[in-house]
Design a protein around this nucleic acid. Sequence first.
DNA 1: TTGTACGCGTTATCAG
DNA 2: CTGATAACGCGTACAA
Lengths: 386, 386
Amino acid sequence: MPSASSNPSETRPSGSRADDPDTHRTGGLDGGSVPDGAHFSFVGSGIGGVGIDDVARLAGVSTATVSRALRGLPEVREATRARVRRAAAELNYVPSPSAASLASGRTRTIGLLTASFSRWFNRNVVEGAEERLRAAGYDVLLHAFDFSLDGSRAPIDMSAMRQRVDGVIVLGIPLSPDERRTLDELSVPMVFVGTGPPDHVRVSMNDHEGSRIAIEHLAALGHRRIGQIGAKVPYDSRWSSAAERHEGTIAALAELGLEYDESLETFGDYTQAGGRAAAAALLDAHPDMTAIFAYSDEMAFGALEELRARGIRVPEEMSVIGVDGHELSSLIRLTTVAQDARAQGDAGATLLLEMIAGAHVGRDVRFPVALVDNGSTAAVSMSSRA
Amino acid sequence: MPSASSNPSETRPSGSRADDPDTHRTGGLDGGSVPDGAHFSFVGSGIGGVGIDDVARLAGVSTATVSRALRGLPEVREATRARVRRAAAELNYVPSPSAASLASGRTRTIGLLTASFSRWFNRNVVEGAEERLRAAGYDVLLHAFDFSLDGSRAPIDMSAMRQRVDGVIVLGIPLSPDERRTLDELSVPMVFVGTGPPDHVRVSMNDHEGSRIAIEHLAALGHRRIGQIGAKVPYDSRWSSAAERHEGTIAALAELGLEYDESLETFGDYTQAGGRAAAAALLDAHPDMTAIFAYSDEMAFGALEELRARGIRVPEEMSVIGVDGHELSSLIRLTTVAQDARAQGDAGATLLLEMIAGAHVGRDVRFPVALVDNGSTAAVSMSSRA
DNA sequence: TTGTACGCGTTATCAG
DNA sequence: CTGATAACGCGTACAA
C-alpha cells in the first residue's frame, strides 16, 4: 500500500505503533462542541497533528516556554528545559516550519541558484554548500538552470524566492541586469560563487593566477601559438570567471612578451560538446597552433575528442591544458589547473551564514590553484602538423 | 588536487555600502509619524510589506477573491480576475508561502533525498527531477548525503521533513529499517529512484537486463572467468540496484551454462577509488580472470586506472565493461550498458506529482538499457597474462 | 524565570 | 460569483 493519497484522513497506515496519540485536535481554546475525532478540517495535519500546546500541556508549562526551551534560548531553567524536551520527544513533536516562519519572519532556508550540474564545478560547490548549510540547521532550496551561456535563456524569476529564503547563493550564473535588480530587491544576504558582480560578496578561484599558470607552463615548453577555448560573456564582461580568465591570459602573454592573437580565441561555453566544436574551429583556422588552453576540464575533454577524431596525437603534436582538477583528468591524461570547488561551496555557505548573523564579511574570497601535470602537454615538437 | 588545506586569500574588508543601511521591513500601514525626507518609495521597491489586503483594497474586492483569482480557481469572473491580476502586478505582490502553507497544509515543496553527486546517476536524476518539479510549480528541498554504502553512516533524521514537504523522492539511498519507518510516518507520497524497497513506488533501470547484456556480451567474446565489481548492500539484500544487478549476473551465467564463482565478486561501493581497489583485489586473487564487469562506469574507471598502473592492456589482455553510459565513457573508451538517468528523474517526479494529485500509479517503472561498445572489450586472447 | 495574548498572511468555510 | 471571518501553529512583546 503506497501512501498515495494526499488526504491524510483516509489512508493512514493503521496499527503500526500503539504509542501514537493521533487524532488530537489542537484548537483547545474554543469549540468544546465539536465531537472528538471529527474531521471538519483536513488542513495542516500531517500524521500526528501534535502541536506546541500538546507539548505544553504534557510538560505542565506554557507554549511560550516550550518554544523557548526547544529553541535553546538561555532564559529557561535547565530543569524546565529537560521536562519540555522529554514531553516533546514523547509526543514526537516537530515544530511547523510554516508557522515558525510566519511568526518570526525567518525561514531557515537558503536559496541555491545554480547552473547545470553537468558542470563539474557547480556540482561540487553544491555539495560543499549543502553540507555546510544543513549542518547549520538550514534547508536548501535548489534551483538548477540548464541553459546555454550564450545569451538566449529564459529570464529567471527571482521573486519566486520572496519570503522563502533567508539568503541566496548564486552559482555560476551570469545574471542579467534585470535579474540582479530583482534579486537585490529580495533584500536578503547574497553570496556569489564562481562568478559574480563586483560590489557583492564573491567566492571563486584565483582566475588570473590560473590563466597565468597555464600560459606560463605552455610557454616554458616553447609554445607560441596557443588557442583558447573560453566562454561567451552575455551581459557584463567585467565580472564572470570567463572574463577574468581571459584577462589573465592576455596579461600572462604580455608578461612573457608573446603576441596576443584574437583569432586564437573560441568559445565552448563550458560544455564538452562546445569544447569539441571550439577545438574543431581552432584546428581548421590555425594549422600552426601547437597548444590549446581550455577554461574548464570538460571543454578540454571535448577538445581531446576532436583531436583523437582527427588523428592528432596528444601531447606529441598538440598540447592541451584545462582548468578544474576534474576527478577523471588523471585517467584521461589531461594536465589541468586544479581548484577545490567543494571548499568554495563550503566557504560561500559559511560567509552567507555569517552575513545572516549580521556580520560584515569581506567582499571577495579567492581560492588558490595548482598545476597538475597529467601528461597532456609537452615541448613543441619539430614534426609540425602543418 | 591543490593543497589539502585550500586556504582562500585576501579577504578585503568591505567598503561602505551607502545604499544599504540595514533595510528592514517597514510597517507600511501605520507609519504616520515618519520624519520628512523619508523615502515614500518603499512600496515601489517592493520589499516585503505588500500583503493580500493591499491588493484587495486596490482591486476593490475582498482578500478571499484575491486569493481565488490569483490561484486560478474557476469560480471567479474573468473581469474580476483581470482586475486583481493588474493590482497584484502593480503592487509587485508575491504571496507568502509560509502563510499559504500554514493555512492550506500544502507546501508546494518536494523533498529530494539523495546520495552524493559524485555518482553520475544521482546528479543526472536530480537534474531531471528538479526541472520537472519546478516546471510544475514545486520547490525542491535538497538533502544530499555523502556516505559510504558499507553500513557505517549516521542515521538520517527524516522527521526534519515533517510539515515541510508534500512529497519525497529518495535517490540511491538504501534506507535502514528505522529510516524507512520514520519516512513512512511522514505520510506523504514517496517515490524511490534507482534503488528502493518493494511495496513502494520505484523507478530504475532494468537491472537484471543490464547484467544479462553485459554478461552475454562478454561470454560471446569467449570470456569465462569474469570478475564483478559490485556494492555492499547494508540492510536488506532483496531490494537495491546492486542486489538486482548481482542477481541478474548469476542468472545470466546460469543461462549460459557458465560457472558462478563467488570469489570473483568484489565491492567498489560505486566510487572510482573503490572500483580501483576492488580491481586490484581481483587481479591479485585471479590471474586467470580475463574480464571485469563493474556495476557502474565510475567503478570501471577506477578499474581502468589500476589496469593501467599494472601495465595490463585493455582490451587486449583484459576486457572491462561498466554500467551507466557516462558522458566520458566514449573518450575513456569504456564499453558500457547505458541508461537514461535524467529521464528516470523526470519520471520519478512525474509519478510523485500524480500521487500528490491523488492518482494511483504503478508500483514499478523500469527503464530500458542498451549496450554501447566503446572498445574496452575484445575476444579472449591467446596471450594470457598468467 | 515563566505566562498571557496578540499577530504573522493566507486559505477554506459558510453565508449571501 | 463574492464577502466576512475563523482557523492554521508558532514567536514574542509585555506582564507577572
